[in-house]
Design a protein around this nucleic acid. Structure first.
Lengths: 261, 261
DNA sequence: AAGCACAGGTTCAATATATGAACCATAAGC
DNA sequence: GCTTATGGTTCATATATTGAACCTGTGCTT
């Protein structure tokens, strides 16, 4: 792998952790030598992608991505468009709803709206969602090309709970069902006691760019409920796509008015 | 410079452009060979930091930074804390207000709230703010250490308008005035006809982490107005700092509840 | 339609850069 | 005061990066 690739993977790993790692942790988690990890961290820090706590010497994501994200969202306002629909869905379903985007070969959570109920599913932002074990992943795969499916199923399928489907043939069947239904269902694939209903967000070419998913405690979700969720989540996905690709889309000759500070 | 540094600089350049560049443009702008630029772009694309438009073959910022930014903001919610104050300031001042953060050796705009008036100053998100030519930069420098000031003033000071102060001695004087006043003023330093009033946002150690600035058309701003702006912008900066460092600050043992999709 | 100019993209020998085992320094635990 | 952690550094070696020259396709000119 190129050095740049290693640095970006490091950044990705850093974003997945739920505690700030030290140098040794980073090296171990990324499978790098301590010296290499350090050089990468220093380089990333120079550019603001990583911050080191001056006291604890632990590392964390820096503020540079925030600036890049703002620029990206100013031109391609995926979150700005999608979040209101996620919120609406969370209100009507009374369950936790999350939005994921495909990026860098994986599907990752970029927004979550919690269920108003006390007993609810918690989803963390930044989580990678395995294709075979989540409704988001299945929804994404189902509407991707054949080669994307092959790629995903040719890798070893990790088991997260005793209910995780790890047989590629069975996953394939779930994908077929997802295509037939128009939405995906994953029961306890990643977490025990949780069932999710997801739909892909498609670009005008039909390529999925992400997904929107309702995650509910298993005890609250019977077949009828899930079908209801499937209908509303599919509708929301479609409306997000229409709004994202329909209106907006500026670019080209920007205003060029340089501001001042 | 390390390869990683080049890749990150490329990303930074990409975020500063107001139109999507092609391969040749990227190479030229970053001072790289076409082959090198391509390799970096491909590597960045693999990880979702860059996207290539499949039709026009132009490059743009990808969605990976959005995910990283969400993770960062979930733990260090600078924008979430600061934006309401920026908005309030824009309403009371009736002028454009923008928020900048220091990252990767430069001060960059990360949020803007426009003036409600028809005749208003436009600030673009992602803009780098030169230290000597903007109120944001002066406010930042004034409360930084001596070595930061030396570093900034030892470099050639670019001239953006006929009013830009490019004499280090004069800039030093403006910095002293900023310290005395508690806020900075920059008149037409970056853009003709615009005057700005800025204050630094300080960490508990006294180190500035960013700035908040009111930018007004020169014709609307007399000395009294500017003093008024200075007072409210300083107050806002202080309140942001207190709220950002005061409450929140979680980390440590996160909930560890892995969500599902 | 032949010729030209310029775009994106690729190749491979030369070379600069990244790597990692061994190292030092410091702190905590016993 | 010894052991075992940590963060951090060094430098000969190994490897990834570089860029001039090279395709290839597209659109414009003649």
């Amino acid at each position: 792998m190129s050095t740049v690739g290693k640095a970006l993977s490091l950044l990705d790993k850093l974003s997945q952790l739920n505690a700030e790692p030290g140098l040794t942790d980073v090296a171990r988690l990324c499978g790098l030598d301590k010296a290499t990890a350090r050089r990468l961290l220093v380089e990333l820090e120079k550019h603001g992608f990583v911050e080191q706590d001056p006291e604890t010497r632990k590392y964390r994501i820096g503020s540079a991505p925030v600036r890049l994200a703002r620029v990206r969202e100013a031109r391609y306002p995926f979150l700005r468009i999608a979040v209101p629909f996620v919120r609406e869905l969370a209100e009507t379903s009374e369950e936790t709803v999350h939005l994921a985007e495909f990026s860098g070969g994986a599907l990752s959570t970029i927004h979550v709206e919690d269920s108003p109920r006390a007993h609810r599913v918690i989803v963390e932002i930044g989580t990678h969602l395995p294709f075979h074990a989540t409704a988001s992943g299945l929804a994404y795969l189902a509407f991707s090309g054949k080669k994307q499916i092959e790629l995903a199923l040719s890798q070893p399928l990790e088991s997260f709970t005793e209910h995780t489907v790890t047989d590629p043939a069975v996953v394939r069947k779930m994908i077929d069902e997802t295509i037939a239904r128009g939405f995906s269902i994953s029961s306890q694939g990643l977490e025990v006691g949780v069932v999710s209903t997801g739909a892909p967000i498609l670009s005008p070419t039909g390529q999925p760019i992400g997904s929107i998913t309702i995650a509910a405690p298993l005890v609250r979700a019977n077949a009828a409920t899930l079908n209801g969720f499937g209908a509303i989540v599919s509708a929301a996905a479609k409306r997000i796509s229409e709004k994202y690709y329909g209106s907006e889309r500026p670019m080209g000759t920007a205003t060029q008015a340089r501001g001042t500070g």
